[in-house]
Structure formats: C-alpha cells, structure tokens
Design a protein around this nucleic acid. Structure first.
Lengths: 157, 157
DNA sequence: TTATTTAGAGACTATTTTATCTTATTTTTG
DNA sequence: CAAAAATAAGATAAAATAGTCTCTAAATAA
C-alpha cells in the first residue's frame, strides 16, 4: 500500500472541503462529510486534526462549525496533504527500506526507484486542490468510498 | 510504505540466493543468509516459504540443506518476488483505495497514478535476479540491513 | 541406525494501524 | 445564562503486520 488509509481519507476530505468551499464560504461539517464520503466520523475527525495542525485546514467548534481550507486551494497540492499525514518517507526513503541508501552507497534498485519517486513527487506536487476538486464535477469522478464500507449505527429500532 | 517489510526482505533474500548461486550450486543456508542480511531467522524462513510455494525457490532439509532458485535467475524478475509476497495490488489498485476505480469511473488521480504504476511495473519487470545480483558485486551496492537492526540473542554468558 | 543439522509449521507475542466510544470544550442560538 | 450543536481529546478495541519461540520432519553423516 503506497498511502496509508488515513492519508487517502485525508486526500478525499481535502478535495471535499475544496469542492464545498467553491460553493459557499461556510465551514464544512465533518458529520456531513463523513456521511457523504462514507468515512468513519471519529477517524475522519482525527485525520482532519492532523491537517489542521499541519496548517492546511482551520476548524471552528459549535453550531455552523466545521473545517475550512486555511490557504487558497490553488496553493495547496496533494503532496502537502500526503506529507501532513504520512510524512516525506514516500518521497525520500529507500524502496527496500535500507537506511543510508543514497547516491554514495545505493541499493540494487536505487536508480530506478529514485526516478519513479521523483516522478510521483512532481506529478502530485503539480495537482492542487482547486483544479482537482473542480475536475470532480466536470468529469463526474469517483471520490467517495462505497456506501456500507463503514457501518451505519443509527438503524431503525 | 510501498512494499511491506516482508516483501523487501524477500527481495534481499532472492538477490542473496541469486548471488550465491552464481558461485556454487549448493543450497543456500537460511541461517547464514539471515546473519549476513541481518534479518530475523524465523521471520525470514516464513518469507522464503512463501517464495517456495510461489515457485520461485526450492528448499531442502537436513545438513547441506537450504534454499535455491527454482528457475534460471535470468527468468525471475523483481516483480515476480513482489507479487509472490505482496500480491498484485501495487500494480492494479487505486492510489486512493477506491474500489471500482478505473477508466469508466476514475478517481481524481487515476490518470496520474496509472502512468506511474505502469512505469513501476515495467521498470521492475525488467530487472531480473541474475543481472541485479551481479551488479551488487560489480558496483559494490548496499543490500543488507545494518547490523543490530535485529537483536542477536547468542550473547556472552 | 542414531545423532546432528537444517527447513517446516504453528502457536504465541509485540507493534502499528485502523476504528470506535466516551467525555470535554467551544460556539451559537434562544 | 442555559441548551444545543459541533469539534477536540483521550481511552479503548480490533485488525493487520512484524517478529519470536517451540516443536516437528526430513536429510546427512558418523
């Protein structure tokens, strides 16, 4: 798995917030977001807290509270979100997990992986939340987990 | 983490076996390999069993026993080893973990990730154990964990 | 054929990641 | 100021991954 689940949820949530923000300046409700993305509310809350402490989101308690992007969504890249949650490891670490692997004393796949991860970095560094969120509606993209991936506890009875 | 630790150990072990095989036709001792690669013996044993049941290695018990490559090391690619341990997921799954993501209904990063993972696949599909193992000695590459990464229990006393 | 050496197999433990549950704390609304 | 609505925080649990330990089975060598 390239990204942790927490990280993928963080990306989906960031795109959700960017998308909502283009329609209204209100804070985005975490409860509503968790239902629409089918992500566990409490788990999502923690991930959003990481994004908040990383300076990507701001939050507000109370009625009409929620989260919002702290900066211009055009200035926030997917790499920013990945780094906030999973750290820089994906873009810096040896594929084989060998500490100290680098140009001086590389591992058997260093050259190959170095190229691929640079490509990964630049590709996702170039995708900002504004454009990416806009493409969701324009191209009718998938960006939520399937319903039922998380169990709904407020059942009839 | 792109590859599981089990998978990275499996790659290092496969390269170790390929390297030893180029010098002698004897079975490669798992105990010796675990010491030289600094990988926990029992854990390594399990990983090697996966490679054996995947048809990449053969094993032999008893004195002079150990493991050996089942096929010509030129015919075994790093992708074969990755797939034997981590499965095909890395080369097929959606980066955001969205089930059903594909050309018909893609996720917001489908196109980008599709290109990168194809590159990843073809790059490592093109690296076979023979050439890769040979490069270890020719270029003096790093391919073992640092000593002490695993604790040695046969201490003085 | 018996002892030794080595891999195989399964139970067990530890750690990390993912997810849930409960209790604050803050903000708005009446 | 009190009630309600929402996020924050921390404890707890479940699941996946990583690692260890013990015993079994097979092969060699004396």
């Amino acid at each position: 798995m390239v990204l942790s689940k927490a990280c993928t949820y963080g990306i989906l949530a960031s795109l959700y917030v960017a998308r909502e923000s283009s329609r209204s300046k209100d804070y985005v409700s975490i409860g509503k977001m968790s239902k629409e993305l089918n992500i566990s509310f409490h788990f999502l809350t923690k991930i959003l807290q990481q994004l908040t402490s990383a300076g990507i989101l701001v939050s507000m308690k109370g009625p009409k509270g929620g989260v919002a992007l702290k900066r211009d969504p055009k200035e926030i890249s997917l790499v920013d979100v990945v780094v906030a949650i999973d750290g820089m490891g994906l873009f810096t670490d040896c594929l084989l997990g060998l500490p100290g692997c680098g140009e001086e004393k590389p591992c058997p796949v260093h050259g190959e992986w170095d190229g691929i991860r640079a490509n990964l970095f630049h590709t996702f560094r170039g995708k900002n939340l504004e454009e990416t969120a806009k493409s969701i509606d324009e191209l009718n993209l998938r960006f939520a987990l399937p319903a039922g991936a998380e169990v709904d506890r407020e059942d009839s009875g």
